[in-house]
Amino acid sequence: MGFKLLSKLLVYLTASIMAIASPLAFSVDSSGEYPTVSEIPVGEVRLYQIADGVWSHIATQSFDGAVYPSNGLIVRDGDELLLIDTAWGAKNTAALLAEIEKQIGLPVTRAVSTHFHDDRVGGVDVLRAAGVATYASPSTRRLAEVEGNEIPTHSLEGLSSSGDAVRFGPVELFYPGAAHSTDNLIVYVPSASVLYGGCAIYELSRTSAGNVADADLAEWPTSIERIQQHYPEAQFVIPGHGLPGGLDLLKHTTNVVKAHTNRSVVE
Rank of each mutant, 00 (worst) to 15 (best):
S160T: 13
E147Y: 14
K251M: 13
G53Y: 07
S193C: 05
D119F: 00
L185K: 02
T153V: 14
R128D: 12
G131M: 06
I104P: 00
W55K: 01
Y68A: 13
L81E: 00
D164R: 08
G53K: 08
H115E: 00
L83V: 08
A19P: 14
L24D: 15
P69W: 14
D85L: 00
T134R: 01
L249W: 03
L9I: 14
E219A: 12
E145G: 14
S155W: 08
L217W: 08
G163D: 07
H260S: 14
L10M: 12
G198C: 06
A129E: 14
V54H: 00
I100G: 00
P138K: 09
G158S: 08
E99L: 14
E99H: 14
A213Y: 08
Y196C: 05
G242E: 04
Y188R: 01
I224D: 03
L6N: 15
A133V: 13
I201C: 00
V132N: 00
L143M: 11
K251A: 13
G2E: 15
Y175A: 01
V265W: 14
I238N: 02
V124Y: 04
A130N: 15
L97W: 00
G131S: 08
T153R: 10
A94F: 11
V265G: 13
I201V: 14
V121W: 00
Q229W: 10
E267V: 05
A136W: 04
L247V: 15
T253M: 02
S181P: 03
E80S: 09
W88C: 00
T222G: 12
P69N: 15
I100L: 06
P221K: 08
E80P: 02
L83M: 09
T93E: 00
L96G: 00
L156S: 02
V28W: 09
P244F: 05
E44Q: 13
E219Q: 10
H260Y: 09
I74W: 02
V265H: 10
S139I: 13
S193V: 07
G32C: 06
T261I: 12
K251I: 12
G122L: 06
R110Y: 14
S191E: 14
A129D: 13
R120H: 06
I58W: 06
Y202Q: 08
P190L: 07
L195D: 00
E233H: 12
I74Q: 01
W88P: 00
D164I: 06
P244G: 04
N71M: 06
Y135A: 01
A178V: 08
M18D: 13
Q61I: 06
R76I: 07
D85N: 03
V146I: 14
T86S: 05
G177K: 02
G2T: 07
A192L: 06
A213F: 10
R46Q: 09
I20S: 09
M1C: 04
P69R: 08
S38N: 08
G65V: 07
P176V: 01
E203A: 08
H117W: 00
Y68C: 05
F168P: 02
A165R: 13
